[in-house]
Design a protein around this nucleic acid. Structure first.
Lengths: 242, 242
DNA sequence: CGCGAACTTGATGTAACTCAAGGCGAGTGG
DNA sequence: CCACTCGCCTTGAGTTACATCAAGTTCGCG
């Protein structure tokens, strides 16, 4: 059954900024439906002009860019609360594809309605821009990590990010969060080979820092992971929800 | 002397979307002043909360992120027409620094006025979001390049980008555009060492593809460069101007 | 039970890094 | 005016982190 925005389970989380009442009302009108997809579904395709945009209600996915030579770059892991299709919505064309990794539930919006959002509810338009800025911020971090750090630091950074995001979404249980991806996905996200990623994970495992098994990630030594990743674990980013 | 937005030399360029008349009027009020800076000036500093935002009228600069170990990642080269400070404007904190490479002229805006932009002129708010989306798009490309390509391809990609952007800004003269940076800057942008960047540039020079000397970049074989970079040279991105 | 997908592990190769030195032009000072 | 320095570019030699190749293991599934 379709969830009414005022009952949205995500909105309560500390990860997201609070809504004004009128914003909730607006979102209810903006939301045209809800959608379940199976693992492996392509939600949006690179260079395509989708008429639909989404917010992830539950489940996880992958943003990635395919290159001509057949390789791919994973841009980001998609979590609940993420907005999908901003580029298609604003520029009319996606720079990357989005694929469901697990089964997912999505709130569906019409691309054509975006303009009404700018015209009739500045708060929501601002939120959308805020989301874009947060994404830009993240991509800067990612670029710096991929560009300048060693394999060990890269892996630590990625898993630290995942862990922090999971915590903000209240997905943690005994220092364990769901991470339903393949090692190849992580390798493609970090610009490493599968083999080297595997060996690096092995090292972190042997040193007792973490364990990633059966789609679950457990962090034993958060402090050490943070050091390796050289990340401020202190300030969690609060961002809008669409 | 301060330029009136209706006389803005950038607005005429094919690189930018056209303005409605009311948008020009608004920008004239939004613009609080103009500013000249010397090479080396830090316009915005990572993690700071600047009260001012800028659009580059002329000159060039560098966006970069400093890492704890003293290294840096160059995020992008700053060209005329670029908007600086979106993250500070929306999120209240910059994820990177911006530095002037040449002397620059900047249009100055107040961070505090951003909200009025959303409230009173949706077209401009949309433009701002559009800019953010374009930047996200670019960073995705950059990530894929840094993550997956060889040094030769990386350098080719970067210089191809530069050349294309310069063309859109009408900065070309005999296949030559200004590129007033150091090899170290390019190296830091691509995640390569200075030495290796130098050798790669040497290769492209010897093969007659390009020449970068005395702050000027000449492309002799655009086609070959595009192939190495595996880039659609066909569709130039048109984006808003702030 | 056989097969394929994902994860491991070891051996070997190489692209890119680091270190070190030299060249070249611009600025400076004795 | 020559000697010196300083920033940037260039080049060569040696090292290494990561990639590639090649098996092998485990496990779920038809």
């Amino acid at each position: 059954m379709t969830i009414n925005c005022k009952d949205c389970p995500l909105r309560q989380l500390s990860a997201f900024e609070p809504f004004k009442k009128e914003e909730i009302d607006f979102m209810n009108r903006f939301k045209t439906g809800q959608m379940e997809v199976q693992p492996g579904t392509h939600l949006l395709v690179q260079a395509s002009k989708s008429p639909q945009l989404f917010t992830v209600l539950s489940g996880m996915g992958l943003r990635y860019k395919s290159l001509e030579n057949g390789e791919r770059q994973v841009i980001n892991f998609v979590f609940p609360g993420d907005f999908i299709g901003l580029q298609a919505g604003i520029m009319g064309e996606m720079g990357h594809s989005v694929e469901a990794t697990t089964s997912m539930t999505l709130c569906v919006f019409n691309r054509a309605d975006i303009w009404s959002l700018f015209r009739s509810l500045p708060d929501r338009a601002y939120a959308l821009t805020h989301l874009a800025a947060v994404e830009e911020h993240f991509l800067g971090d990612a670029l710096a990590t991929i560009g300048q750090k060693s394999a060990l630091e890269k892996v630590a950074w990625a898993l630290c990010q995942i862990f922090t995001r999971s915590a903000a979404l209240d997905l943690l249980k005994n220092d364990t969060c769901p991470f339903p991806y393949k090692q190849q996905d992580l390798a493609d996200a970090l610009g490493l080979s599968l083999v080297h990623t595997n060996k690096t994970l092995g090292r972190l495992r042997e040193e007792g820092v973490l364990l990633w098994k059966d789609g679950n990630l457990t962090i034993y030594d958060r402090h050490k992971l943070g050091e390796l990743a050289s990340i401020d674990t202190s300030v969690p980013i609060v961002r809008p929800l669409m």
